[in-house]
Structures are given as C-alpha cells and as structure tokens.
Amino acid sequence: MSELVMPVGVRDHAQGSAYAPVTLLEYGDYECPYCGQAYVIVKRLQAELGDELRFVFRNFPLAQVHPHALRAALAAEAAGFQGAFWPMHDVLFEHQGALGTDHLVTYATLLELDVERFIHDTESGKAERRVREDFMSGVRSGVNGTPTFFVNDHRHDQWYQYGALREAVYAAAGVMRS
C-alpha cells in the first residue's frame, strides 16, 4: 500500500480541524471530469462529518492531456496568496468547462480579489513551484492518475465513489477513536 511521502503540513491548503481524527487528501486536476465527480462526493462527506474530517487538496495537473489544467492550478494557488484558495477551488470545479484565461480572471473579479496581483501571481514562479512540488510529491507517493485520495496518509485504492470513500473515512475515524 502506498504511503504519503510529504506529510500534510502548514504549506498545505486544508479545510477542517487540524485535530480531526481523519485527514482526507486529494491529488486532483481541475480539468479532470472524474475529479469533478469527486468534488461533489467530498463536499457531501464534509457536510456529514463536520469537524471530524480534515480535507487537503494538492495539485496534480495532467497538463499534456488537459490543456487548461495547469493554468487552473496556478489560478487556485494565486487566489491562495490572497486567502481565497478554497473559494477559487470551488468555482473551478463548478465550472470545469470554462477554464480559459479570461474565465480565470472573471472568477478572480467575482471573488473580489486584487486582479492585477492575481494575474501577476499566476505567472510567477512561486505558484508554479507550489504546483510542481505538489505534483512530484504525488508521483513519489504512488499517485498514478486523478483523482487519487489518501486517508490518513494511506492511499485509498478503492473506487472514489461516495460509498467506498465514506467507508474508508469512517474506518480511519474508528481506528483513531479506539
């Protein structure tokens, strides 16, 4: 079973309590249709588990297959520099068919970001370094496609549909409590 080689830390984008018994980590791609399906499933689990679940997202853009994936990942990171990673993350997954450069700028405007800074940051090496670091940490952890989930640092090798993911998360929560 593959293990996460780069532990979840302060560098990561996380939702939920750092003390949650379960950390669900996704390596995802904003243009991948399966990640779009997984987005809804994760939201459902978060609503159900509340503080019991911490969710972490790392970028794994398959840029050669998905022409907008890298730009979208950079946009999420650039929004993150203005404290708006998660709102941008949500907008991107809810508009997977509209990830062109103009769209990204529109989303930044709608989220009331400093747009000039946003554009500058998407083109800066800083955002790209983060995305690359995410990507390589995934490769070294046995990520071989998207979405790939880790539940408390163990790769979730089952299907990512609601039932299977929920079962894995609950199993991890149970182990932590006992």
Binding site: Y34, L62, A63, Q64, V65, V139, N144, G145
Partner: peptide, 16 residues
C-alpha cells in the same frame, strides 16, 4: 481511459 492512464503520467514526468 485517459485520466488514470500510465502513458499520461509518464508523459508528465518526462522532465524528471
């Protein structure tokens, strides 16, 4: 299938 495919992954890590 594309997203999970081995060739796509190796294509992405060519720089490595």
């Amino acid at each position: 299938p594309i997203c999970g495919s081995e060739v796509s992954l190796f294509n992405e890590i060519l720089p490595e």
